[in-house]
């Protein structure tokens, strides 16, 4: 198999994830898109690990999974908090950063 078929698949998933993060209004959907990005990264890590016959790729993929779990936990907590404060998880309404 070609290395590139994995890498390109991962690139497609990554870009779809980026699209989701940028275009979605709903906080939950944005978090899901982030998961897409993280999974794309994981495919990359494992593919390079296999390519170099190095176990490091798998190890870091595992770390990414752990970090992703933490990220979802925190992300959901933030979305819940936002929902509690504003009765909405529409990200376009969260514009306090406006300078």
């Amino acid at each position: 198999m070609l290395l590139n078929q994995f890498l390109l698949l991962s690139a497609v998933l990554f870009c779809l994830g980026v699209y989701g993060v940028l275009a979605r209004k709903n906080g939950m959907l944005v978090l899901m898109s982030v998961e897409l990005i993280l999974n794309a990264v994981n495919i990359n890590l494992v593919a390079f690990g296999a390519f170099r016959t190095d176990v490091g790729g798998s190890v870091f993929a595992l770390f990414t999974i752990a970090v992703a779990a933490a990220e979802v936990g925190i992300g959901l907590a933030i979305v819940l908090l936002m929902y509690r404060n504003r009765r909405s998880i529409d990200l376009t309404q969260a514009d306090l950063l406006k300078g």
């Binding site: 198999m1 070609l2 290395l3 590139n4 994995f6 890498l7 390109l8 690139a11 497609v12 990554f14 870009c15 779809l16 980026v18 699209y19 989701g20 993060v21 940028l22 275009a23 593919a47 296999a50 390519f51």
Partner: peptide, 26 residues
């Protein structure tokens, strides 16, 4: 806007990947 950014990103990545790994086998 998001689609443009996504496509642009993909273009860059695909270009880089195809350019550097061509038909490397795993």
């Amino acid at each position: 806007m998001a689609a443009i950014v996504g496509v642009l990103l993909f273009a860059v990545m695909a270009m880089a990947l195809v350019d550097s790994f061509e038909d490397t086998r795993v």
